[in-house]
Design a protein around this nucleic acid. Structure first.
Lengths: 111, 111
DNA sequence: ATTTTTATTGACAATTTTTGTCCAAAATAT
DNA sequence: ATATTTTGGACAAAAATTGTCAATAAAAAT
């Protein structure tokens, strides 16, 4: 009920500190600069899928949960400045369902 | 109940055709190339806020509704490929509320 | 208290993405 | 048939994003 309110970066940092790992070590595993990881933790740079996967592994987190955390950050950030954000989310949900119901088959979508 | 399932581009085109306006005329008002407008209608290019405002004016649409239509397209497009899109939307909604409750004042957000 | 390690941050070049236009071809209307 | 409209690829320009470096600060260790 509170975890939901943490950002991707906050969660990553929390876990890293819990294990007393310096940026250096985690960054090494991700094959990135410590600076880049520091920015992930401050949400100043965006990790890619591979980064997310590796971070989930390292901290024994459910990858899907971590992905949801990350994606919801982005959506929230995009919409927090919009007055109608709730409506946007509701309409978006309907649209996603609708699009999926049409493209029952593969992944590529005309949209 | 069905309008929700239309994209921004589809709606714009619908209204333009209803009024028998060629791309040329609408594009002129927006001060863009006909080709650009054609792409807006096919969701191959993104209009900016000013474009949306002008389009709402031209077709006597509620600007906020049109904006919701446009933003929800983007969110839907971003998430339609994700298995956990519904969860993402729910978490995003909570986050938006949370962020707003913290930044009760102005617009700039640390995030 | 000094040294060593870690974290922070801005600046930067490189890459990627997005943008709008031009142009030629296709479609439609007159 | 001619004129008008629409389409879509290619393109350069602009904008956004990326990851690193390097200098600095902060923290921890000795």
């Amino acid at each position: 009920m509170d975890a939901i309110k943490k950002t991707f970066g906050e969660v990553i940092r929390q876990h890293r500190e819990q294990q007393n790992l310096p940026l250096r070590k985690v960054a090494a595993q991700l094959d990135i600069d410590t600076s880049t990881l520091a920015k992930f933790e401050k949400n100043l740079r965006h990790p890619n899928r591979e980064h997310i996967t590796k971070l989930a592994e390292m901290f024994a987190l459910d990858e899907q949960d971590l992905l949801v955390l990350y994606l919801s950050d982005r959506v929230a950030y995009d919409l927090v400045g919009e007055t109608n954000s709730e409506q946007v989310l509701r309409v978006a949900e309907e649209k996603i369902k609708y699009i999926r119901s049409k493209n029952t088959v593969q992944g590529v979508l005309g949209f």
